[in-house]
């Protein structure tokens, strides 16, 4: 348990020093908002467009900034060190929590940026929106962490990463966009709890199976 917190602290400290994820997030948010504002000056953006963009920005920031956690360890050849210090499960858990924290921060900053710059971004249902962001972050991170562990051992990382993560993350993104649509329109066509239920069980399944099998990835 102690080593888990040490590892988590180490990851957060590394991120704080390099600010890799923070910069990539800033660039993504700024470009999307600016391109949107300059290209469609006075038009009202449709809710569907805004919520899709929200999750596209979130997806790419998570992908570039955070999900390199395991890949970086492998590239810096520090994974062996970590494995001497702690069990694979502990390393996995610390990476998972690091990714969840990072992705939560990313989503909250996107929310702030969108509500400052895009007039169409008005949240009607705050509880549902908070839940969407929380569960969406957990689900995205649970997929990103295990895939990052798998990728770290393979060659052609740059090509494989999007290819592997895209189909596994897309169901999460689809349901998140639907949920965000609901929070932004204040009118429910659908049973919004279904989507939350889907995301919750999807992330539970991903995390459980990762915990079960992550140790085999680093077995030689």
């Amino acid at each position: 348990m102690k080593s888990f917190f040490t590892l988590l602290y180490k990851d957060l400290l590394c991120e704080f020093r390099t600010k890799h994820a923070i910069y990539s997030l800033l660039v993504f948010v700024l470009t999307t908002v600016l391109v949107l504002l300059f290209s469609i000056l006075d038009k009202d953006f449709s809710v569907e467009l805004i919520s899709s963009l929200f999750w596209i920005v979130s997806f790419f920031s998570t992908m570039t900034g955070l999900s390199r956690s395991f890949v970086l360890e492998e590239e810096k050849h520090t994974i062996m060190f970590l494995r001497l210090q702690s069990s694979v499960t502990n390393i996995y858990l610390s990476k998972l929590f690091y990714t969840i924290i990072g992705s939560l921060i990313i989503n909250i900053s996107i929310t702030i940026a969108f509500s400052l710059f895009l007039s169409g971004f008005i949240i009607y249902n705050y509880t549902l929106f908070a839940l969407t962001i929380l569960i969406g972050s957990i689900a995205l991170s649970s997929a990103a962490t295990i895939l990052s562990a798998i990728i770290s051992r393979a060659e052609f990382k740059g090509l494989l990463f999007p290819l592997l993560s895209f189909p596994i993350m897309l169901p999460i993104l689809i349901t998140s966009v639907q949920l965000t649509n609901i929070t932004l329109t204040n009118f429910t066509f659908e049973n919004e709890l279904n989507y939350l239920q889907f995301q919750l069980s999807y992330s539970t399944v991903l995390i459980t199976s990762s915990l079960m099998f992550v140790k085999y990835i680093f077995e030689e």
Partner: peptide, 26 residues
């Protein structure tokens, strides 16, 4: 550990499956 994991996975899949049996579109 494996048995526990499998139980959790099966339970979550059933939990998610309930979502489409209860759809009531307004």
């Amino acid at each position: 550990r494996f048995i526990l994991g499998i139980v959790v996975i099966v339970a979550s899949i059933i939990f998610a499956s309930i979502s489409f049996t209860e759809t009531n579109i307004e």
